[in-house]
Design a protein around this nucleic acid. Structure first.
Lengths: 220, 220
DNA sequence: ACTTTGTTTTTTGTATACACTTGAAAAAAA
DNA sequence: TTTTTTTCAAGTGTATACAAAAAACAAAGT
Protein backbone atom coordinates (compact mmCIF):
# COMPACT_ATOMS: atom_id res chain seq x y z
CA UNK A 1 0.00 0.00 0.00
CA UNK A 2 1.50 3.30 -1.08
CA UNK A 3 1.89 6.03 1.44
CA UNK A 4 -0.66 8.73 0.87
CA UNK A 5 0.55 12.24 0.78
CA UNK A 6 -2.75 13.56 2.00
CA UNK A 7 -2.06 16.77 3.78
CA UNK A 8 -4.67 18.94 5.34
CA UNK A 9 -4.78 22.63 4.88
CA UNK A 10 -5.40 23.91 8.37
CA UNK A 11 -5.10 27.56 7.45
CA UNK A 12 -8.77 28.06 6.96
CA UNK A 13 -11.03 28.21 9.95
CA UNK A 14 -13.54 25.62 8.92
CA UNK A 15 -15.20 22.73 10.71
CA UNK A 16 -12.90 19.73 10.53
CA UNK A 17 -15.45 17.76 8.58
CA UNK A 18 -15.19 20.29 5.77
CA UNK A 19 -11.43 20.26 5.86
CA UNK A 20 -11.46 16.47 5.70
CA UNK A 21 -14.05 16.56 2.96
CA UNK A 22 -11.94 18.86 0.85
CA UNK A 23 -8.81 16.87 1.52
CA UNK A 24 -10.34 13.55 0.53
CA UNK A 25 -12.08 15.11 -2.42
CA UNK A 26 -8.81 16.50 -3.66
CA UNK A 27 -7.13 13.14 -3.14
CA UNK A 28 -9.76 11.40 -5.20
CA UNK A 29 -9.77 13.96 -7.99
CA UNK A 30 -6.01 13.94 -8.36
CA UNK A 31 -5.98 10.17 -8.42
CA UNK A 32 -3.95 9.89 -5.24
CA UNK A 33 -6.81 7.79 -3.93
CA UNK A 34 -7.62 5.30 -6.64
CA UNK A 35 -11.00 3.88 -7.63
CA UNK A 36 -11.84 0.82 -5.60
CA UNK A 37 -9.48 1.78 -2.80
CA UNK A 38 -11.04 1.32 0.59
CA UNK A 39 -11.44 4.30 2.81
CA UNK A 40 -10.92 3.06 6.34
CA UNK A 41 -11.90 5.45 9.04
CA UNK A 42 -9.22 4.70 11.60
CA UNK A 43 -6.41 4.86 9.06
CA UNK A 44 -7.65 8.15 7.67
CA UNK A 45 -8.18 9.50 11.15
CA UNK A 46 -4.64 8.61 12.15
CA UNK A 47 -3.15 9.96 8.97
CA UNK A 48 -5.02 13.24 9.13
CA UNK A 49 -4.66 13.58 12.87
CA UNK A 50 -8.33 13.90 13.71
CA UNK A 51 -10.89 11.58 15.24
CA UNK A 52 -13.22 9.30 13.35
CA UNK A 53 -16.21 11.58 13.70
CA UNK A 54 -15.25 14.23 11.14
CA UNK A 55 -13.96 11.49 8.85
CA UNK A 56 -17.30 9.74 8.90
CA UNK A 57 -19.20 12.92 8.20
CA UNK A 58 -16.92 13.80 5.34
CA UNK A 59 -17.40 10.36 3.86
CA UNK A 60 -21.19 10.71 4.07
CA UNK A 61 -20.83 13.93 2.09
CA UNK A 62 -18.55 12.38 -0.48
CA UNK A 63 -21.06 9.60 -0.90
CA UNK A 64 -23.84 11.99 -1.81
CA UNK A 65 -21.41 13.76 -4.11
CA UNK A 66 -20.90 10.43 -5.87
CA UNK A 67 -17.18 10.23 -5.25
CA UNK A 68 -17.30 7.28 -2.90
CA UNK A 69 -19.50 4.21 -2.71
CA UNK A 70 -20.74 2.85 0.58
CA UNK A 71 -21.02 -0.85 1.21
CA UNK A 72 -23.11 -1.55 4.31
CA UNK A 73 -21.08 -2.89 7.22
CA UNK A 74 -18.01 -2.83 5.05
CA UNK A 75 -17.29 0.85 4.78
CA UNK A 76 -16.55 3.17 1.91
CA UNK A 77 -14.43 2.89 -1.17
CA UNK A 78 -13.48 5.35 -3.85
CA UNK A 79 -16.18 5.14 -6.52
CA UNK A 80 -15.34 3.07 -9.54
CA UNK A 81 -16.23 4.72 -12.79
CA UNK A 82 -17.47 2.55 -15.61
CA UNK A 83 -17.51 3.36 -19.30
CA UNK A 84 -21.27 3.49 -19.00
CA UNK A 85 -21.01 6.05 -16.19
CA UNK A 86 -18.94 8.31 -18.40
CA UNK A 87 -21.42 7.94 -21.23
CA UNK A 88 -24.29 8.74 -18.90
CA UNK A 89 -22.55 11.78 -17.48
CA UNK A 90 -21.62 13.19 -20.86
CA UNK A 91 -25.09 12.58 -22.22
CA UNK A 92 -26.50 14.78 -19.47
CA UNK A 93 -23.70 17.28 -19.63
CA UNK A 94 -24.36 17.84 -23.28
CA UNK A 95 -27.76 19.31 -22.65
CA UNK A 96 -26.80 21.11 -19.45
CA UNK A 97 -23.79 22.82 -21.01
CA UNK A 98 -25.95 23.70 -23.93
CA UNK A 99 -28.51 25.21 -21.60
CA UNK A 100 -25.87 27.11 -19.67
CA UNK A 101 -24.51 28.55 -22.87
CA UNK A 102 -27.94 29.58 -24.05
CA UNK A 103 -28.74 31.25 -20.76
CA UNK A 104 -25.35 32.93 -20.76
CA UNK A 105 -26.21 34.51 -24.10
CA UNK A 106 -29.28 36.08 -22.55
CA UNK A 107 -27.90 37.06 -19.19
CA UNK A 108 -24.19 37.68 -19.36
CA UNK A 109 -23.08 40.99 -17.86
CA UNK A 110 -20.46 43.30 -19.29
CA UNK A 111 -18.04 42.37 -16.55
CA UNK A 112 -18.51 38.73 -17.33
CA UNK A 113 -17.89 39.34 -21.01
CA UNK A 114 -14.55 40.82 -20.08
CA UNK A 115 -13.87 37.91 -17.77
CA UNK A 116 -14.71 35.52 -20.56
CA UNK A 117 -12.26 37.13 -22.96
CA UNK A 118 -9.62 36.99 -20.31
CA UNK A 119 -10.32 33.33 -19.57
CA UNK A 120 -10.17 32.37 -23.25
CA UNK A 121 -6.86 34.19 -23.65
CA UNK A 122 -5.62 32.59 -20.44
CA UNK A 123 -6.41 29.15 -21.78
CA UNK A 124 -4.61 29.79 -25.03
CA UNK A 125 -1.49 31.00 -23.26
CA UNK A 126 -1.70 28.09 -20.80
CA UNK A 127 -1.54 25.58 -23.63
CA UNK A 128 1.72 27.20 -24.57
CA UNK A 129 3.20 26.48 -21.16
CA UNK A 130 2.73 22.74 -21.43
CA UNK A 131 1.88 22.55 -17.73
CA UNK A 132 -1.10 20.21 -17.56
CA UNK A 133 -2.32 21.46 -14.19
CA UNK A 134 -2.24 25.03 -15.42
CA UNK A 135 -4.09 24.15 -18.61
CA UNK A 136 -6.73 22.24 -16.70
CA UNK A 137 -7.24 25.19 -14.38
CA UNK A 138 -7.55 27.61 -17.27
CA UNK A 139 -10.06 25.32 -18.94
CA UNK A 140 -12.10 25.05 -15.76
CA UNK A 141 -12.03 28.82 -15.42
CA UNK A 142 -13.37 29.35 -18.93
CA UNK A 143 -16.27 27.03 -18.30
CA UNK A 144 -16.89 28.55 -14.89
CA UNK A 145 -17.34 31.98 -16.41
CA UNK A 146 -19.98 30.73 -18.80
CA UNK A 147 -21.69 28.81 -16.05
CA UNK A 148 -21.72 31.86 -13.80
CA UNK A 149 -23.16 33.92 -16.64
CA UNK A 150 -26.13 31.55 -16.79
CA UNK A 151 -27.19 33.02 -13.44
CA UNK A 152 -28.84 29.78 -12.45
CA UNK A 153 -27.47 28.41 -9.19
CA UNK A 154 -28.98 25.00 -9.49
CA UNK A 155 -27.54 24.61 -12.96
CA UNK A 156 -24.11 25.72 -11.80
CA UNK A 157 -24.15 23.25 -8.97
CA UNK A 158 -25.28 20.36 -11.13
CA UNK A 159 -22.79 20.93 -13.92
CA UNK A 160 -19.96 21.28 -11.42
CA UNK A 161 -20.97 18.03 -9.83
CA UNK A 162 -21.01 16.25 -13.17
CA UNK A 163 -17.68 17.73 -14.14
CA UNK A 164 -16.19 16.55 -10.88
CA UNK A 165 -17.14 12.98 -11.47
CA UNK A 166 -15.26 12.71 -14.72
CA UNK A 167 -12.47 15.12 -13.81
CA UNK A 168 -9.77 12.47 -13.93
CA UNK A 169 -10.67 11.44 -17.43
CA UNK A 170 -10.97 14.97 -18.55
CA UNK A 171 -7.43 15.47 -17.28
CA UNK A 172 -6.22 12.74 -19.61
CA UNK A 173 -7.96 14.51 -22.43
CA UNK A 174 -6.29 17.78 -21.49
CA UNK A 175 -2.90 16.10 -21.40
CA UNK A 176 -2.96 15.28 -25.08
CA UNK A 177 -1.49 18.27 -26.85
CA UNK A 178 -3.02 17.07 -30.12
CA UNK A 179 -6.30 18.55 -28.85
CA UNK A 180 -5.04 22.01 -27.96
CA UNK A 181 -5.64 23.74 -31.25
CA UNK A 182 -9.14 22.42 -31.56
CA UNK A 183 -9.95 23.32 -27.97
CA UNK A 184 -8.75 26.87 -28.49
CA UNK A 185 -10.88 27.25 -31.58
CA UNK A 186 -13.91 25.78 -29.89
CA UNK A 187 -13.57 28.10 -26.93
CA UNK A 188 -13.15 31.03 -29.24
CA UNK A 189 -16.27 30.11 -31.16
CA UNK A 190 -18.31 29.68 -28.01
CA UNK A 191 -17.04 32.97 -26.62
CA UNK A 192 -17.94 34.92 -29.74
CA UNK A 193 -21.43 33.51 -29.85
CA UNK A 194 -22.09 34.19 -26.18
CA UNK A 195 -20.76 37.73 -26.33
CA UNK A 196 -22.85 38.46 -29.41
CA UNK A 197 -25.89 36.83 -27.86
CA UNK A 198 -26.27 34.40 -30.72
CA UNK A 199 -28.09 31.66 -28.83
CA UNK A 200 -28.54 29.19 -31.63
CA UNK A 201 -24.92 29.12 -32.71
CA UNK A 202 -23.70 29.21 -29.12
CA UNK A 203 -25.61 26.08 -28.23
CA UNK A 204 -24.34 24.28 -31.28
CA UNK A 205 -20.78 25.28 -30.52
CA UNK A 206 -21.13 24.12 -26.92
CA UNK A 207 -22.56 20.82 -28.02
CA UNK A 208 -19.76 20.23 -30.49
CA UNK A 209 -17.33 20.96 -27.70
CA UNK A 210 -18.78 18.20 -25.55
CA UNK A 211 -19.23 15.72 -28.37
CA UNK A 212 -15.58 16.02 -29.30
CA UNK A 213 -14.64 15.48 -25.71
CA UNK A 214 -16.89 12.46 -25.55
CA UNK A 215 -15.34 10.90 -28.63
CA UNK A 216 -11.85 11.06 -27.17
CA UNK A 217 -12.75 10.12 -23.62
CA UNK A 218 -14.69 7.02 -24.55
CA UNK A 219 -11.62 5.73 -26.40
CA UNK A 220 -9.45 5.63 -23.32
CA UNK B 1 -43.82 24.24 19.08
CA UNK B 2 -46.13 21.64 17.57
CA UNK B 3 -45.57 18.02 18.34
CA UNK B 4 -44.01 16.27 15.41
CA UNK B 5 -45.51 13.03 14.35
CA UNK B 6 -42.22 11.80 13.02
CA UNK B 7 -42.27 8.08 13.34
CA UNK B 8 -39.48 5.85 12.22
CA UNK B 9 -40.13 2.76 10.22
CA UNK B 10 -37.95 0.18 11.91
CA UNK B 11 -39.14 -2.69 9.74
CA UNK B 12 -36.27 -2.44 7.36
CA UNK B 13 -32.88 -3.58 8.43
CA UNK B 14 -30.92 -0.48 7.57
CA UNK B 15 -28.27 1.56 9.32
CA UNK B 16 -29.95 4.02 11.63
CA UNK B 17 -28.53 6.97 9.73
CA UNK B 18 -30.47 5.85 6.67
CA UNK B 19 -33.63 5.34 8.65
CA UNK B 20 -33.23 8.80 10.15
CA UNK B 21 -32.43 10.23 6.73
CA UNK B 22 -35.59 8.79 5.24
CA UNK B 23 -37.67 9.88 8.20
CA UNK B 24 -36.48 13.47 8.10
CA UNK B 25 -36.70 13.55 4.32
CA UNK B 26 -40.26 12.40 4.47
CA UNK B 27 -41.02 14.97 7.14
CA UNK B 28 -39.64 17.75 4.99
CA UNK B 29 -41.36 16.64 1.81
CA UNK B 30 -44.75 16.32 3.45
CA UNK B 31 -44.36 19.72 5.05
CA UNK B 32 -44.45 18.34 8.57
CA UNK B 33 -41.09 20.06 9.01
CA UNK B 34 -41.50 23.55 7.64
CA UNK B 35 -38.94 25.67 5.78
CA UNK B 36 -36.83 27.65 8.20
CA UNK B 37 -37.54 25.29 11.07
CA UNK B 38 -34.43 24.49 13.05
CA UNK B 39 -33.30 20.91 13.21
CA UNK B 40 -31.75 20.49 16.62
CA UNK B 41 -29.80 17.33 17.13
CA UNK B 42 -30.64 16.63 20.73
CA UNK B 43 -34.35 17.18 20.22
CA UNK B 44 -34.46 14.97 17.16
CA UNK B 45 -32.38 12.34 18.91
CA UNK B 46 -34.78 12.29 21.83
CA UNK B 47 -37.82 12.24 19.65
CA UNK B 48 -36.58 9.45 17.43
CA UNK B 49 -35.00 7.51 20.24
CA UNK B 50 -31.48 7.36 18.84
CA UNK B 51 -28.24 9.13 19.69
CA UNK B 52 -26.94 12.27 18.05
CA UNK B 53 -24.49 10.45 15.82
CA UNK B 54 -26.93 9.02 13.27
CA UNK B 55 -28.88 12.27 13.37
CA UNK B 56 -25.79 14.25 12.45
CA UNK B 57 -24.92 11.95 9.60
CA UNK B 58 -28.44 12.06 8.27
CA UNK B 59 -28.37 15.85 8.37
CA UNK B 60 -25.08 15.93 6.45
CA UNK B 61 -26.79 13.83 3.79
CA UNK B 62 -29.85 16.02 3.68
CA UNK B 63 -27.60 19.02 3.29
CA UNK B 64 -25.98 17.61 0.16
CA UNK B 65 -29.43 16.68 -1.07
CA UNK B 66 -30.36 20.34 -0.71
CA UNK B 67 -33.21 19.77 1.72
CA UNK B 68 -31.55 21.44 4.68
CA UNK B 69 -29.24 24.41 5.05
CA UNK B 70 -26.34 24.41 7.47
CA UNK B 71 -25.40 27.49 9.43
CA UNK B 72 -21.97 27.07 11.02
CA UNK B 73 -22.06 26.76 14.80
CA UNK B 74 -25.78 27.21 14.69
CA UNK B 75 -26.94 23.94 13.24
CA UNK B 76 -29.28 23.00 10.45
CA UNK B 77 -32.63 24.26 9.32
CA UNK B 78 -35.08 23.07 6.73
CA UNK B 79 -34.14 24.74 3.45
CA UNK B 80 -36.13 27.76 2.48
CA UNK B 81 -37.26 27.73 -1.12
CA UNK B 82 -37.37 31.03 -2.94
CA UNK B 83 -39.26 31.89 -6.07
CA UNK B 84 -35.90 32.10 -7.81
CA UNK B 85 -35.03 28.57 -6.66
CA UNK B 86 -38.18 27.25 -8.27
CA UNK B 87 -37.43 29.11 -11.46
CA UNK B 88 -33.90 27.72 -11.51
CA UNK B 89 -35.05 24.19 -10.87
CA UNK B 90 -37.72 24.28 -13.55
CA UNK B 91 -35.33 25.82 -16.05
CA UNK B 92 -33.03 22.85 -15.62
CA UNK B 93 -35.81 20.35 -15.43
CA UNK B 94 -37.15 21.49 -18.73
CA UNK B 95 -34.08 20.31 -20.60
CA UNK B 96 -33.54 17.21 -18.49
CA UNK B 97 -37.10 15.99 -18.89
CA UNK B 98 -36.82 16.73 -22.55
CA UNK B 99 -33.63 14.68 -22.73
CA UNK B 100 -35.17 11.83 -20.77
CA UNK B 101 -38.11 11.75 -23.12
CA UNK B 102 -35.88 11.76 -26.17
CA UNK B 103 -33.74 8.93 -24.80
CA UNK B 104 -36.86 7.03 -23.83
CA UNK B 105 -37.99 7.15 -27.46
CA UNK B 106 -34.77 5.45 -28.49
CA UNK B 107 -34.40 2.96 -25.68
CA UNK B 108 -37.76 2.02 -24.25
CA UNK B 109 -38.36 -1.72 -24.01
CA UNK B 110 -41.61 -3.49 -24.78
CA UNK B 111 -42.19 -4.15 -21.10
CA UNK B 112 -41.73 -0.48 -20.35
CA UNK B 113 -44.19 0.48 -23.08
CA UNK B 114 -46.75 -1.68 -21.36
CA UNK B 115 -45.83 -0.16 -18.02
CA UNK B 116 -46.22 3.29 -19.52
CA UNK B 117 -49.70 2.58 -20.80
CA UNK B 118 -50.63 1.23 -17.42
CA UNK B 119 -49.22 4.30 -15.65
CA UNK B 120 -51.07 6.69 -17.92
CA UNK B 121 -54.32 4.82 -17.37
CA UNK B 122 -53.61 4.74 -13.65
CA UNK B 123 -53.20 8.49 -13.57
CA UNK B 124 -56.44 9.07 -15.39
CA UNK B 125 -58.38 6.85 -13.02
CA UNK B 126 -56.62 8.43 -10.03
CA UNK B 127 -57.86 11.87 -11.03
CA UNK B 128 -61.34 10.40 -10.82
CA UNK B 129 -60.83 9.40 -7.20
CA UNK B 130 -60.09 12.94 -6.04
CA UNK B 131 -57.52 11.60 -3.57
CA UNK B 132 -54.59 13.99 -3.89
CA UNK B 133 -52.02 11.58 -2.51
CA UNK B 134 -53.13 8.92 -4.93
CA UNK B 135 -53.01 11.31 -7.87
CA UNK B 136 -49.55 12.52 -6.93
CA UNK B 137 -48.32 8.95 -6.70
CA UNK B 138 -49.77 8.08 -10.07
CA UNK B 139 -48.16 11.16 -11.58
CA UNK B 140 -44.79 10.27 -10.10
CA UNK B 141 -45.14 6.76 -11.42
CA UNK B 142 -45.80 7.95 -14.95
CA UNK B 143 -42.72 10.11 -14.93
CA UNK B 144 -40.67 7.37 -13.32
CA UNK B 145 -41.46 5.01 -16.15
CA UNK B 146 -40.23 7.48 -18.74
CA UNK B 147 -37.16 8.22 -16.68
CA UNK B 148 -36.39 4.54 -16.33
CA UNK B 149 -36.81 4.10 -20.07
CA UNK B 150 -34.05 6.63 -20.63
CA UNK B 151 -31.66 4.02 -19.28
CA UNK B 152 -29.36 6.71 -17.95
CA UNK B 153 -28.74 6.36 -14.24
CA UNK B 154 -27.19 9.75 -13.75
CA UNK B 155 -30.11 11.41 -15.48
CA UNK B 156 -32.58 9.47 -13.37
CA UNK B 157 -30.83 10.48 -10.19
CA UNK B 158 -30.60 14.14 -11.14
CA UNK B 159 -34.19 14.51 -12.23
CA UNK B 160 -35.39 12.78 -9.09
CA UNK B 161 -33.34 15.14 -7.00
CA UNK B 162 -34.77 18.16 -8.78
CA UNK B 163 -38.27 16.83 -8.45
CA UNK B 164 -37.76 16.30 -4.75
CA UNK B 165 -36.82 19.88 -4.15
CA UNK B 166 -40.06 21.25 -5.52
CA UNK B 167 -42.27 18.38 -4.49
CA UNK B 168 -44.32 20.46 -2.08
CA UNK B 169 -45.19 22.99 -4.75
CA UNK B 170 -45.90 20.34 -7.28
CA UNK B 171 -48.36 18.91 -4.79
CA UNK B 172 -50.25 22.19 -4.75
CA UNK B 173 -50.38 22.05 -8.52
CA UNK B 174 -51.75 18.53 -8.38
CA UNK B 175 -54.41 19.57 -5.90
CA UNK B 176 -56.12 21.87 -8.34
CA UNK B 177 -58.62 19.78 -10.23
CA UNK B 178 -58.80 22.44 -12.93
CA UNK B 179 -55.55 20.99 -14.27
CA UNK B 180 -56.58 17.36 -14.47
CA UNK B 181 -57.94 17.28 -17.99
CA UNK B 182 -54.90 19.05 -19.39
CA UNK B 183 -52.53 16.79 -17.47
CA UNK B 184 -54.24 13.69 -18.80
CA UNK B 185 -54.00 14.95 -22.35
CA UNK B 186 -50.36 15.91 -21.96
CA UNK B 187 -49.49 12.52 -20.55
CA UNK B 188 -51.34 10.84 -23.33
CA UNK B 189 -49.51 12.87 -25.94
CA UNK B 190 -46.12 12.14 -24.40
CA UNK B 191 -46.92 8.47 -24.14
CA UNK B 192 -47.94 8.17 -27.77
CA UNK B 193 -44.81 9.92 -28.99
CA UNK B 194 -42.52 7.81 -26.84
CA UNK B 195 -44.16 4.55 -27.82
CA UNK B 196 -43.99 5.47 -31.49
CA UNK B 197 -40.41 6.63 -31.13
CA UNK B 198 -41.21 10.10 -32.41
CA UNK B 199 -38.37 11.96 -30.72
CA UNK B 200 -39.09 15.43 -31.98
CA UNK B 201 -42.73 15.53 -30.98
CA UNK B 202 -41.99 13.75 -27.72
CA UNK B 203 -39.53 16.41 -26.65
CA UNK B 204 -41.94 19.17 -27.52
CA UNK B 205 -44.73 17.50 -25.61
CA UNK B 206 -42.49 17.03 -22.58
CA UNK B 207 -41.43 20.65 -22.69
CA UNK B 208 -44.99 21.89 -22.91
CA UNK B 209 -45.78 19.73 -19.91
CA UNK B 210 -43.10 21.46 -17.83
CA UNK B 211 -43.83 24.94 -19.10
CA UNK B 212 -47.47 24.62 -18.11
CA UNK B 213 -46.42 23.43 -14.71
CA UNK B 214 -44.05 26.36 -14.40
CA UNK B 215 -46.74 28.87 -15.27
CA UNK B 216 -49.00 27.66 -12.52
CA UNK B 217 -46.35 27.09 -9.89
CA UNK B 218 -44.79 30.50 -10.21
CA UNK B 219 -48.18 32.05 -9.50
CA UNK B 220 -48.47 30.54 -6.06
C1' DA C 1 -6.18 -32.42 0.23
C1' DC C 2 -10.51 -30.28 1.24
C1' DT C 3 -14.29 -28.64 3.68
C1' DT C 4 -16.21 -27.01 7.74
C1' DT C 5 -16.27 -24.88 12.03
C1' DG C 6 -14.50 -22.04 15.65
C1' DT C 7 -11.74 -18.16 17.01
C1' DT C 8 -9.47 -13.88 16.51
C1' DT C 9 -8.93 -9.49 14.37
C1' DT C 10 -10.45 -5.72 11.99
C1' DT C 11 -13.75 -2.34 11.10
C1' DT C 12 -18.02 -0.25 11.18
C1' DG C 13 -22.33 1.42 13.90
C1' DT C 14 -23.90 3.81 17.82
C1' DA C 15 -23.76 6.14 22.20
C1' DT C 16 -21.87 9.36 25.15
C1' DA C 17 -18.75 12.69 27.29
C1' DC C 18 -16.48 16.99 27.16
C1' DA C 19 -14.95 21.43 25.32
C1' DC C 20 -16.01 25.53 23.14
C1' DT C 21 -19.31 29.14 21.01
C1' DT C 22 -22.96 31.71 20.97
C1' DG C 23 -27.16 33.77 22.27
C1' DA C 24 -30.06 35.28 25.84
C1' DA C 25 -31.35 36.53 30.25
C1' DA C 26 -30.31 38.72 34.50
C1' DA C 27 -27.90 41.98 37.16
C1' DA C 28 -25.43 46.15 37.78
C1' DA C 29 -24.22 50.76 36.46
C1' DA C 30 -25.26 55.12 34.22
C1' DT D 1 -35.37 53.74 31.96
C1' DT D 2 -31.62 52.48 29.26
C1' DT D 3 -27.25 50.52 28.52
C1' DT D 4 -23.60 47.59 29.58
C1' DT D 5 -21.60 43.66 31.70
C1' DT D 6 -21.78 39.18 33.53
C1' DT D 7 -23.40 34.84 33.86
C1' DC D 8 -25.68 30.89 32.36
C1' DA D 9 -27.97 27.76 29.43
C1' DA D 10 -28.38 25.60 25.08
C1' DG D 11 -26.28 23.60 21.17
C1' DT D 12 -22.73 22.30 18.04
C1' DG D 13 -17.91 20.29 17.19
C1' DT D 14 -14.91 16.69 18.29
C1' DA D 15 -13.06 12.70 20.63
C1' DT D 16 -13.55 8.33 22.46
C1' DA D 17 -15.59 4.05 24.28
C1' DC D 18 -18.13 0.00 23.52
C1' DA D 19 -20.95 -3.32 20.95
C1' DA D 20 -21.86 -5.98 16.96
C1' DA D 21 -20.87 -7.61 12.53
C1' DA D 22 -17.91 -9.29 8.98
C1' DA D 23 -13.68 -11.05 7.28
C1' DA D 24 -9.59 -13.61 7.82
C1' DC D 25 -7.31 -17.25 9.59
C1' DA D 26 -6.39 -21.51 11.94
C1' DA D 27 -7.59 -26.06 13.43
C1' DA D 28 -9.97 -30.26 13.30
C1' DG D 29 -12.55 -33.73 11.15
C1' DT D 30 -13.59 -36.26 6.91
Amino acid sequence: MGELKLQMNMDEYLPLRDVVFNTLRQGILTGELKPGERLMEIHLADRLGVSRTPIREAIRMLELEGLVTMIPRRGAEVARISRQDIRDVLEVRLVLDSLATKLACERITEDQKEELRSAAAGFESATGSGDVTLIAQADVRFHDVILAASHNRRLIQMVNNLAERIYRYRLEYIKDSANYQRLIEEHSKIMDCVINGDEGSACIAAEIHIVNQEKVMLNM
